[in-house]
Computed example of a mutant assay.
Amino acid sequence: MPAYVEVIGNLLQNPEQRPVSVKGEDRLITELRVYSDVYKRDPDDESKMIQDDAKCDPYNVTIWNERLGTEIMKLLRKGARVRIAGEQTLQKWEDKETDMPRVALHIDADTCELRLNRIEEIRFRAKRVES
């Protein structure tokens, strides 16, 4: 049973879209790689925060909502700070080159929000005028 999780971190690469077929219906999914990072107080200097490597993990993220995926493709790129929320699962497979078992954390996200860290400017598009 998957758990509902919230992850905050940076995109490891630019988002990618690809078509998939689900029950004979074509869908366009958006895929992200997010590195979740957690910080703690530096034991040597309480005024500094340092990354807690034991609690940081990379996640494979799939966005099934095509409208959200389209906006992600327009607005996000590698390095963007995001908050992802959705169902987490553990993907398991066997590496074809090494025949070794592999695992990865995966999130089927229903929410992707841009965090304001690293944002230099925000511009809003003009309001649409109904005719």
Rank of each mutant, 00 (worst) to 15 (best):
P15C: 08
E16K: 13
R18D: 07
P19M: 12
P19D: 13
V20I: 11
S21C: 11
V22A: 06
K23W: 01
K23D: 06
K23C: 10
E25F: 08
E25D: 09
D26R: 13
R27D: 03
L28E: 06
L28I: 01
E31A: 03
E31V: 00
E31K: 14
E31G: 09
L32Y: 02
L32M: 10
L32G: 02
L32R: 04
R33F: 06
R33C: 14
V34S: 14
Y35W: 00
S36M: 10
S36I: 00
D37L: 09
V38H: 12
V38E: 12
V38T: 08
V38D: 14
R41T: 09
R41S: 15
R41K: 15
P43A: 10
P43D: 09
D44M: 09
D44G: 13
D45N: 13
D45M: 07
E46C: 03
E46V: 03
S47E: 03
S47H: 03
K48H: 07
K48F: 01
K48S: 03
M49Y: 06
I50N: 09
Q51D: 04
Q51N: 05
Q51A: 11
D52K: 08
D52M: 11
D52W: 04
D53G: 14
A54C: 08
D57V: 00
D57M: 09
D57Y: 03
D57I: 00
D57F: 05
Y59K: 14
Y59N: 13
N60P: 10
V61H: 10
V61I: 07
T62C: 15
T62G: 15
T62E: 15
T62L: 13
I63Q: 15
I63P: 15
W64V: 06
W64S: 14
W64L: 15
W64G: 12
N65S: 13
N65F: 04
E66M: 14
E66N: 15
R67S: 09
L68Y: 01
L68C: 10
L68V: 03
G69F: 04
G69Q: 14
T70S: 15
T70Y: 12
T70G: 12
T70H: 13
E71C: 08
M73I: 05
K74L: 04
K74E: 08
K74C: 05
K74R: 10
K74N: 05
L75E: 05
L76M: 03
L76R: 02
R77G: 03
R77I: 00
